[in-house]
């Protein structure tokens, strides 16, 4: 083990780590919001909008993230859209994960008994009040495990952004390995970094789940 190389490379690794955190959190926020929009779009009772929704799903779930990112990165300029590598990364991952999130939202909304909505309707709730007081507080607890899962997958997949030279942590570790000819050390560090990020994410998910389902655990 040649640990002394870290003395020289820690600023690069640190900036890579920060970059990964930025790119992942940006694309997750984008995905969570776009996912809600997509879910609401899918509930419009119209054949055309539903077909557009299905098309979005099949394209973004049916092709690898790597291919999508490549197409945005190299295909974008052909359409006059020139984005930085980091922007392509955020956009690509956001669009990709939104497709999954939307379906997770859908499973959550579908899992609530219809009678609860009817009761609220019957007692005079507006549609917005039904959403904010009956549906969302319960759905959160139901979908958080799936959202956490999908977020962890996305964070690990963010490594492929190194291929389009986004200076995130995998990019930094690969650079370090190729410059120092020490492969094992940077990759152990890399594995540890992803593990720590995902550990924090999963603990956060557990915490939110616990908070939002306390009413179920009171038996």
């Amino acid at each position: 083990m040649e640990l002394s190389i870290f003395i020289e490379y820690w600023p690069l690794l640190l900036s890579g780590l920060i970059f990964t955190l930025k790119v992942c959190s940006s694309s997750l926020i984008m995905g969570l919001l776009l996912g809600i929009f997509l879910y609401l779009f899918s509930t419009i009772k119209n054949r055309l909008t539903f077909m557009i929704y299905r098309a979005y799903l099949t394209i973004f779930r049916g092709t690898p993230l790597l291919v999508q990112v490549y197409l945005i990165f190299y295909g974008g300029p052909l359409l006059g859209i020139t984005l930085s590598a980091a922007e392509v990364g955020i956009l690509g991952m956001g669009l990709y994960v939104a497709a999954y999130f939307s379906e997770i939202y859908r499973s959550g909304f579908n899992s609530l008994p219809k009678g609860q909505i009817e009761a609220a309707q019957n007692l005079g709730f507006s549609k917005r009040q039904i959403l904010t007081h009956i549906q969302l507080p319960q759905i959160l607890g139901l979908i958080v495990p799936s959202l956490t899962n999908q977020s962890i997958i996305l964070i690990k997949e963010s490594a492929i952004l190194s291929i389009i030279s986004v200076p995130e942590i995998t990019y930094a570790a690969v650079k370090m390995a190729s410059e120092t000819y020490s492969v094992v050390e940077p990759y152990i560090f890399l594995a540890g970094a992803y593990w720590v990020i995902n550990f924090v994410v999963s603990r956060f998910g557990n915490w939110v789940e616990l908070k939002s389902t306390h009413y179920l655990a009171t038996n």
Partner: peptide
């Protein structure tokens, strides 16, 4: 008009 349901339909989170 208010309705009482077979399945009660109380809101479990409240």
């Amino acid at each position: 008009v208010c309705m009482v349901f077979q399945q009660f339909n109380l809101w479990p989170h409240m």
